[in-house]
């Protein structure tokens, strides 16, 4: 009886069970992350090859650019640099003042994180997930759960890290949530991705809460995954239905999720070992 099972069916059963077990482990725990990391070395050449024409195109564009346009760009960048530096002077003073005031209040607000520039690889992942691949991995010290930002705001976090590349889940992915607060008044909420490119939903905001269209929402630092104070988005719609317990608030992400080519990896301060916040006063920052 046992010997009558055809070999192919037996193998099918074995591999189907193996797949199901693997999926269960991957979904529930994170033990197979090392397997994924090892396999990412095998698939990195594919990603690299697909990205190569894009990179070469850029290289050609860069080397064919005229002296005139370079001069023009240089002048523009100088101007921008001057503007930003003057702004920064003001911010430096404000930062010191803020820190002093926070010390007076004995709160634990910290600024200054280590960052590293990473570049996007021009590859497309599964079409119903909002994920991107970047060219920095565990060799450069990236880790699972690391926040990723661009010049305008928070982009997402690393979900799979390999030696040479990492996968970043954007804040608009349907399974992503980030704790935020309204910059104007500190009202806390959770911003949840919808799976659409440029849309976030703010959950659990009561109907009578003070939130308006145009409010800037920033990361609150609760959950100690994202550093506090980075812009996340701007409120675009507040719909209040008296029959519902919570208001329906949507926001547009600040980061240029579908346009940025360079992103920044951020090491929050307690990851570098400098500061370790006690859980008691890590509440609001």
């Amino acid at each position: 009886m046992f010997l009558k099972i055809p070999a192919a069916s037996l193998r099918l059963a074995v591999f189907v069970i193996a797949s199901v077990v693997l999926m269960t482990i991957d979904h529930r725990q994170h033990h197979v992350e090392t397997v994924r990391s090892a396999l990412s070395v095998v698939v990195y050449p594919f990603q690299y090859l697909v990205n190569l024409p894009v990179e070469m195109g850029q290289w050609v564009v860069n080397s064919l650019v005229t002296r005139e346009s370079l001069l023009k760009e240089n002048a523009r960048l100088r101007e921008e640099h001057l503007l930003l530096s003057s702004k920064l002077q003001k911010f430096a003073a404000l930062e010191v003042e803020n820190q002093r005031l926070n010390e007076l209040l004995e709160s634990s607000f910290k600024v200054g994180e280590r960052v590293l520039v990473a570049e996007l690889l021009a590859v497309e992942l599964e079409r119903f997930q909002r994920q991107i691949v970047i060219n920095k991995g565990s060799r450069e010290g990236a880790f699972n759960g690391q926040p990723v930002v661009d010049a305008a705001g928070i982009m997402g976090q690393i979900v799979h890290v390999g030696p040479f590349s990492s996968t970043v889940m954007l804040i608009t992915d349907a399974s992503h949530a980030i704790p935020v607060q309204v910059n104007r008044n500190g009202l806390r909420a959770v911003a949840i991705g919808t799976g659409a490119t440029n849309n976030l939903e703010l959950e659990y905001i009561p109907n009578n809460a003070d939130i308006r269209v145009g409010d800037l929402i920033v990361s609150s630092g609760l959950g100690s995954r994202f550093p506090p104070g980075y812009p996340v988005g701007q409120v675009t719609r507040v719909a209040i239905d008296p029959g519902e317990p919570f208001a329906k608030v949507t926001a547009i992400p600040s980061a240029k999720l579908d346009r940025s080519r360079e992103v920044l990896l951020v090491w929050p301060q307690d990851q570098t070992g400098e500061v370790n916040q006690a859980p008691a006063n890590s509440g609001k920052s």
């Binding site: 192919a8 193998r11 189907v16 193996a18 797949s19 991957d26 994924r36």
Partner: peptide, 30 residues
């Protein structure tokens, strides 16, 4: 080329696309 190769290909595809490890493997094996 058979079921074993299909499974390995599926795992690689899962890593490449960032899906649940085993999702494509299951489909390809079947």
């Amino acid at each position: 080329v058979g079921i074993g190769i299909a499974w390995v290909l599926g795992l690689l595809l899962d890593v490449l696309e960032g899906t649940l490890l085993g999702q494509h493997a299951l489909g390809l094996v079947v």
